[in-house]
């Protein structure tokens, strides 16, 4: 078994690294949750992040997204011409239902990064948003109020919004939490499809082992303040999965 527990040495898993975490410590208010993370995420790869609640999965992706500053270390990106564009799909239940936004209003937010403040959103960007909603099979939710959609429907709108950002990297934080089995499969199948078709790098936080085995190419496993990185087949052995189930992760 060749599972590598990363402490300080950089690992390069694929030929073309897109995001390189160099001796990174992550946490809140200068209190590290996880330290010494060194790894690289390859361009057009599909990486799943696994770990028990409180292991630092969300903290890790929020640090990569620039939402939380690193406690120590740095994050380098391979993109030279322009800053890396992230498409973020947060957990759908976190949005306050008091906002009277339609599915289209939410998806349209994906293009706001390309529209200067005070300017009207160009027709071409609105059309592109509709295209993204269509691609995410969420066109029928465009006119419905976002707060009234089901968990799976909201996820599709949020994926459409992330696609509207024209991302290099799609980051999904437990996109199948609170949705039924059938919708879960549809959402994951769709993510896998756009990963293959558009060559988008995917970072997926999940508890779903079956999904990881089926779709992910590599796994980052966070446990006990340490991080393990390996290919799906290397990491998700029956022995390791039994250990994870025992820890209450599944």
């Amino acid at each position: 078994m060749s599972i590598r527990t990363c402490r300080a040495d950089t690992q390069k898993t694929m030929n073309e690294p897109l995001i390189i975490l160099d001796n990174l410590s992550i946490g809140y208010n200068n209190q590290p949750v996880l330290s010494g993370i060194s790894l690289s995420i390859a361009r057009a790869s599909f990486t799943a992040i696994l770990g028990a609640n409180g292991s630092g999965k969300s903290t890790l992706i929020k640090t990569v997204l620039g939402l939380i500053p690193p406690v120590a270390g740095c994050i380098n990106t391979a993109s030279t011409s322009a800053p890396l564009a992230f498409g973020y799909v947060p957990q759908a239940f976190q949005f306050d239902p008091i906002y009277l936004l339609t599915g289209f209003d939410v998806a349209l937010m994906g293009v706001y990064g390309r529209v200067h403040p005070g300017r009207i959103v160009p027709q071409i960007e609105r059309a592109f948003t509709r295209e993204c909603l269509r691609a995410a099979d969420a066109e029928e939710f465009a006119r419905r109020r976002f707060a009234e959609l089901s968990g799976g429907q909201k996820q599709r709108v949020l994926i459409a919004r992330a696609l509207a950002m024209r991302p290099d990297v799609l980051v999904l934080d437990e996109p199948t939490v609170g949705v039924d089995r059938e919708t879960k499969d549809l959402v994951l199948e769709f993510i896998s499809q756009i990963h293959k078709e558009r060559k988008i790098t995917v970072l997926l936080v999940t508890h779903d082992f079956a999904a990881v085995r089926h779709y992910a190419e590599q796994v980052i496993w966070l446990h006990g303040g340490k991080m393990s990185l390996g290919s799906t087949h290397e990491l998700l052995t029956a022995e390791r999965m039994a250990e994870m189930i025992e820890m209450g992760m599944a």
């Binding site: 929020k62 620039g66 992230f86 973020y88 936004l101 990064g113 005070g118 959103v121 919004r161 950002m165």
Partner: peptide
């Protein structure tokens, strides 16, 4: 009226606004 879009984005989804470099 002019900056309604930005004010709404920051209120509704702060994380998204940061990712969009607002």
């Amino acid at each position: 009226g002019l900056f309604h879009r930005e004010l709404l984005l920051v209120s509704f989804d702060r994380e998204m606004a940061i990712i969009l470099r607002k």
